[in-house]
Each structure stands twice: as C-alpha cells, then as structure tokens.
Amino acid sequence: MKTRTINAIAIALGLTFSTASMAAAMTRTEYSAEKDRIEKDYKADKVACDSMSGNKKDICVAEAKGKEKVAKAELEANYKPSDKHRYDARVAKAEADYDVAKERCDDMSGNAKDVCVKEAKAALTSAKADAKVQEKTTEARKEAGKETAEARKDAAEDKRDAEYKVAKEKCDALSGDAKDACQAKAKAQYGK
C-alpha cells in the first residue's frame, strides 16, 4: 500500500512538472510577435547609434547587435525549451559581452589595449566554460533522477515482496478457512 502511494506521488509530481513546462511554452503567434518586437527594437537601437561617431558608434552598434542576438537566443529557448537552447542563450550572452568589451578596448592603445582584449577573451572563455558546465550538470541531474527513480521503484518492489513473504508466513500459522482468508488478504494487499 505504501508503494502504491509513493508511486502515485511520483506520477503526480511528474505530471505537475511536465504540465508546468508545457504551460511555459509559447504559441507560434506569440513567438512571431516577440521575434518582430526584437527586430523592431534592434532597428530602433541601431538608429539611435546613427547620431554617434567613431568608437562610441561602434560600441553602440555592438551593444545593439548583442542585445538582438541574446534576445533571439532567449526567445528560442522559451519557444522550444531544451538544454541546447539554454546553452545557446548563455553563449550568445557571452559573445555579445565579448563583442562590446572588444569595442571598448579600441579606445585604448598599446599594452593597455592588449590587456583589455585579453581580459575580454578570458571573460568569453570563462562564460562559455560555465555554460558548458551548466549544460552537463543539467544532463547529469536528469540521468541521476532517472536512475534514482528506477532504484526507488526496485527498492519498493523488493520491500513489497519481503512484506508479502512475512504476511504469507503469518498465514501459515492458521488453518482452514482462516488460512485461506489470510492468504487472500495478503495477496490483495501486496498485489500478488
């Protein structure tokens, strides 16, 4: 009986989480509308950069492109939720930050510029590595969750079998109709 309750709870939790993830998914219409908004925002941001000149304009354009790239990657992760799309969104953010940082380095010269570029590259490498770790950790958790659920199921079966054997042994002390009733009750209780 305890096993059935545990299994019912596990199934209910699984349905809850799968329903929650389905509810979070976007419709095709919402996706298209959000994609159009991102493109309009990018165009507006780019127009705002036109009034600037020199490296300030380059930085502004890099920020606008980065913002668009990140927004599109996040949109894709929301529209089609997956570990790969979440990873892609993290990488898009890292690359956008790198592009902007690299443009900011253009205001410097000599060793200061070289150091700035190396720092930007190191930050990019670090962010990509963190995204990869996050992706692998998520995969490992999913696998561990599956293995844990399987182990729990096996353990529950083993417990149920052991409890059934105990109940059956208790019935052996009885005789006649009492023994038959006891065995029938044990079989019904433990699903045998």
Results as ranks from 00 to 15, higher is better:
residue 29 T to S: 13
residue 78 N to M: 13
residue 32 S to G: 12
residue 43 K to F: 02
residue 50 D to Q: 13
residue 32 S to D: 14
residue 63 E to N: 06
residue 62 A to N: 01
residue 79 Y to T: 14
residue 48 A to R: 03
residue 25 A to T: 13
residue 44 A to S: 11
residue 77 A to C: 13
residue 35 K to L: 14
residue 24 A to W: 08
residue 47 V to P: 00
residue 34 E to F: 10
residue 70 V to N: 03
residue 78 N to S: 15
residue 20 A to M: 12
residue 43 K to N: 06
residue 16 T to W: 01
residue 57 K to Q: 11
residue 80 K to S: 08
residue 51 S to K: 14
residue 62 A to V: 01
residue 24 A to R: 13
residue 39 E to P: 02
residue 69 K to H: 11
residue 15 L to H: 00
residue 22 M to T: 12
residue 30 E to H: 10
residue 70 V to A: 03
residue 61 V to N: 02
residue 19 T to W: 06
residue 39 E to H: 01
residue 22 M to N: 11
residue 25 A to C: 10
residue 39 E to T: 07
residue 39 E to Q: 05
residue 29 T to C: 09
residue 24 A to P: 05
residue 53 S to P: 04
residue 53 S to K: 14
residue 23 A to M: 07
residue 57 K to H: 06
residue 66 G to T: 10
residue 27 T to M: 02
residue 53 S to N: 11
residue 56 K to A: 08
residue 23 A to S: 08
residue 72 K to Q: 12
residue 38 I to H: 01
residue 25 A to F: 04
residue 69 K to P: 03
residue 49 C to H: 02
residue 30 E to G: 11
residue 71 A to D: 03
residue 19 T to L: 11
residue 62 A to Y: 00
residue 53 S to Y: 09
residue 29 T to R: 15
residue 20 A to D: 07
residue 40 K to E: 03
residue 62 A to I: 03
residue 60 C to I: 06
residue 43 K to T: 09
residue 81 P to M: 04
residue 77 A to H: 08
residue 16 T to C: 05
residue 68 E to G: 03
residue 58 D to I: 12
residue 78 N to Y: 09
residue 56 K to T: 06
residue 18 S to C: 08
residue 19 T to H: 02
residue 61 V to Y: 00
residue 60 C to R: 02
residue 70 V to L: 02
residue 55 N to S: 07
residue 49 C to K: 01
residue 45 D to N: 08
residue 73 A to C: 13
residue 22 M to G: 10
residue 51 S to R: 12
residue 51 S to P: 06
residue 46 K to H: 06
residue 64 A to Q: 00
residue 77 A to V: 15
residue 26 M to N: 05
residue 43 K to E: 05
residue 50 D to A: 14
residue 72 K to A: 07
residue 48 A to T: 05
residue 62 A to C: 07
residue 42 Y to I: 05
residue 72 K to N: 12
residue 71 A to F: 04
residue 46 K to A: 06
residue 43 K to V: 10
residue 22 M to V: 13
residue 55 N to W: 04
residue 64 A to D: 01
residue 17 F to W: 03
residue 58 D to M: 07
residue 63 E to L: 04
residue 21 S to M: 13
residue 70 V to T: 10
residue 55 N to L: 09
residue 44 A to H: 07
residue 15 L to G: 06
residue 24 A to Q: 11
residue 59 I to N: 00
residue 67 K to R: 15
residue 36 D to S: 10
residue 37 R to S: 09
residue 78 N to I: 13
residue 32 S to Y: 12
residue 42 Y to A: 04
residue 35 K to P: 08
residue 59 I to T: 00
residue 68 E to S: 12
residue 16 T to K: 03
residue 69 K to Y: 09
residue 33 A to M: 09
residue 31 Y to Q: 09
residue 34 E to M: 14
residue 76 E to N: 14
residue 61 V to H: 00
residue 58 D to K: 08
residue 40 K to S: 05
residue 43 K to R: 08
residue 59 I to G: 00
residue 33 A to S: 10
residue 33 A to Q: 11
residue 39 E to D: 05
residue 74 E to F: 06
residue 68 E to C: 07
residue 65 K to V: 12
residue 49 C to D: 01
residue 72 K to V: 12
residue 53 S to F: 09
residue 58 D to Y: 02
residue 63 E to A: 07
residue 27 T to P: 04
residue 69 K to T: 15
residue 33 A to N: 11
residue 78 N to G: 12
residue 41 D to P: 03
residue 26 M to A: 04
residue 48 A to F: 01
residue 18 S to L: 10
residue 45 D to H: 01
